[in-house]
Write a protein that binds this DNA or RNA. Structure first.
Lengths: 241, 241
DNA sequence: TTGTCTCAACTTGTTTGACAAGTGAAACGT
DNA sequence: ACGTTTCACTTGTCAAACAAGTTGAGACAA
């Protein structure tokens, strides 16, 4: 049932990067010709060209008709874990080197207000679940987060309470609605007063707020999240071009 | 002598986006088949597929063998300026709807300290220029920024002072070293005390700090920048997948 | 010798045609 | 009514060819 997450062209793309490494090519050096690469990877020229186009778009290589392909600026700037890589908050926290503990601050059934309804593309008043959690490491609060999920997606509520303190990703995965992508935006804020007051987060300091709408593979929106990342603990990398 | 800045595939890519707009397609909708698009754009299938692969990588469309191509999460952001798009601070400010005024807070010739030298890939002690500026709009401070540039790149200093209050991009462009990409990271901070005290920015509030190293097309690093974006005025979008 | 021109070889860009593989629905038989 | 097969349609991959831009060697003339 599991799809190969990496398409053929994707695999080829990383193969080309490995080849560049192997050959010890540096900035401005010329790549092997299409003909040579076709032989090396045992694939056809159109397929190879699709992979090369990806690297062109990433500014890793530069192509000139009649001359060849050359390593460009983007080759220098490959980022290990960019902000554009979708991952759960738990994954993100541990990838920053923290061992996270999750504390459930509260959850409740609420109707969708106009803003949230628009974000999740549901009708106003649709039953939602609001989950409020705090990730900490060694007693230091790291991420304060609020998530909204359509009630219909997380069990029918018959058996009472799912494990809200666990991973929402895992919970949705059981219903075949695992989030795989999101549209997000980021800004700098302070924690809202009522939050810092209620949960003893007066020392949290400036926060990086990532507000995102998560999508399942089938296209339905499954989570609207607001994650406040403690400014002194997190930074995110990316490439601009 | 001027090369067509837009390759054929590039042009085709925007053509597809326009077509999506025209057809009024929304998230999850199916795109026309390759066959139909080949007829519409009068190009061959491999060429079309190169353009489609680009949009796939941008998460604008999603492809499934046997089923078709579908609009994905990235389509919602293709209009908004994503954080991953390289642009100057001035461009960014005006794209957020502000009319920016730039005030030069100071500049000086400094030797490269260890950290800055590593960022710019120059030897420690290399002569640099440090430029400190503040962008405002209607009296409201928006972005406080500090830039370091190798002295050698910005005129030889014979004629005294270049126009530091203008665009650094334009300045570097004259030397053929226009920055075109960067590696960046983002975090939430407060303005350093000495900065807010010296320049009357006590009310600036939490700031989104984007720290980036800019590259010219030829691969040399031309700017090391720290841009403090006022949290209450800016937010940046992006797609995660 | 020196400089210029021509041309052939090589590179990427594009097209055409074909087949493989996955999908879904209609047609079919039980 | 239900499961199965078949078939049309989609994307994925391949092969061969020509167009267009670049380079360099060799012919040629001064």
């Amino acid at each position: 049932m599991e799809k190969p997450r990496e398409s053929n062209v994707e695999r080829l793309r990383t193969g080309i990067l490995e080849m560049i490494e192997e050959l010890g090519l540096g900035f401005g050096d010329r790549l092997p010709t299409e003909k040579e690469m076709v032989e090396r990877f045992h694939i056809s020229r159109p397929t190879l060209r699709e992979a090369l186009k990806l690297l062109e778009q990433e500014a890793v290589i530069d192509s000139h008709q009649g001359k060849g392909r050359f390593l460009a600026a983007g080759a220098l700037l490959s980022i290990a874990r960019p902000i554009t890589k979708f991952e759960s908050v738990s994954q993100m926290v541990s990838s920053h080197g923290y061992t996270a503990e999750t504390r459930l601050l509260g959850f409740s059934a609420v109707p969708a207000d106009p803003v949230t309804a628009e974000r999740l593309a549901v009708a106003e008043g649709t039953p939602l679940v609001r989950v409020e959690r705090l990730r900490s490491s060694g007693g230091q609060p790291l991420v304060y987060s609020v998530d909204w999920l359509p009630r219909a997606l997380v069990g029918e509520g018959l058996e009472g309470t799912p494990d809200w303190s666990g991973s929402l990703v895992a919970l949705l995965d059981r219903g075949g609605r695992r989030p795989v992508a999101s549209t997000a935006n980021v800004r700098a804020v302070l924690l809202p007063d009522e939050v810092s007051g209620l949960h003893g987060l007066e020392e949290f300091g400036p926060a990086l707020l990532i507000e995102e709408v998560c999508y399942a593979a089938c296209g339905t929106r499954v989570i609207y999240a607001m994650d406040y990342h403690r400014g002194s603990a997190f930074s995110f990398s990316f490439v601009r071009k």
